[in-house]
């Protein structure tokens, strides 16, 4: 393992507290401040939008990190890039799973069905399966370091689908809405000031949450690497001394 862990405990704790505090504010704004949508948009159920879209945004962001970190890993071979890519894929899959679970809850009363195989939904499922496959590939490998290069290729190629998911609503006729529109004063539709505030606070809160989970996931990966190194050194018997820096507690 190279160097010290990327994240130190006090920074992680502060980031976590900021993320959860921002989430609490976002929930209050989304539930009590933003105007309720019209009945044809699901009425109160439309408030899912304030959690569904930010989850998708964090998923995209994480998969972009997988893409960049995978290129960096193939170029440098540095384990820290591999750990970052692995962690980002895991966090991204968590958030995209939430997208795929919350979307149908909104769709059922509005579309009259839980699911439609339209371009957005289908490409999103393909994206989710791609990164789930990436995680299975890594989980099945006996030594996580040997699978790094293969996983990096999957992480780079898999990213091709991410812009397709995003632009699918513009490229093809889909049932899925193309995105929020500015407030229309004539009929009161679209997003007004309070809705935009709730949306951007939620977007910021979920971004912080994603960053915190990713930093923690990388930290956990570094600890696991260090354990593995020491176990290997213990198995090989007496040899050159292994320098061990005790890890500061994260208060967990």
């Amino acid at each position: 393992m190279q160097g010290r862990p990327l994240s130190t405990s006090p920074k992680l704790k502060a980031l976590g507290m900021a993320a959860w505090a921002a989430c609490a504010v976002a929930v209050v704004l989304a539930l009590f401040v933003a105007r309720e949508a019209s009945a044809d948009q699901g009425g109160p159920l439309q408030r899912i939008f304030y959690f569904h879209v930010p989850s998708a945004w964090v998923g995209y962001l994480c998969f972009a990190i997988v893409f960049i970190a995978s290129i960096a890993y193939l170029r440098t071979g540095a384990r820290r890039w591999d750990l970052l890519a692995h962690g980002a894929a895991e966090v991204g899959v968590v958030f995209v799973t939430l997208v795929l679970l919350t979307g149908p809850i909104w769709a059922r009363p509005v579309w009259g069905t839980w699911w439609q195989w339209d371009a957005r939904l289908t490409s999103a499922v393909v994206m989710w399966l791609t990164y789930l496959g990436y995680l299975f590939l890594r989980a099945l490998a006996a030594d996580p370091r040997t699978v790094g290069r293969l996983a990096a290729i999957v992480g780079i190629v898999g990213f091709i689908n991410v812009p397709i998911v995003h632009f699918s609503v513009y490229w093809w006729r889909t049932l899925h809405p193309s995105g929020p529109t500015p407030a229309n004063l004539a009929d009161g539709s679209g997003l007004g000031g309070t809705e935009l505030l709730a949306f951007f606070v939620s977007l910021g809160a979920f971004t912080l949450l994603g960053a915190w989970l990713l930093a923690w996931r990388v930290h956990a990966g570094q600890l696991a690497d260090r354990v593995e190194e020491l176990e290997l050194a213990a198995e090989l018997g007496p040899g050159p001394a292994v320098a061990v820096t005790p890890e500061p507690g994260m208060g967990t």
């Binding site: 989430c23 929930v27 109160p44 159920l45 408030r47 899912i48 959690f51 569904h52 989850s55 966090v91 968590v94 799973t97 939430l98 679970l101 919350t102 809850i105 909104w106 059922r108 009363p109 949450l209 989970l213 923690w216 996931r217 930290h219 956990a220 600890l223 696991a224 260090r226 354990v227 890890e247 507690g249 994260m250 967990t252």
Partner: peptide, 29 residues
């Protein structure tokens, strides 16, 4: 009610993932 089901899913899932990271870190430490 469905809105609260969706919100519950979001925060229970994120909380669950947080707990899994906590357990992994604790074990490694």
């Amino acid at each position: 009610a469905w809105l609260f089901v969706a919100l519950g899913i979001v925060f229970i899932a994120i909380g669950g993932y947080t707990a899994s990271l906590m357990i992994r870190s604790k074990r490694s430490r």
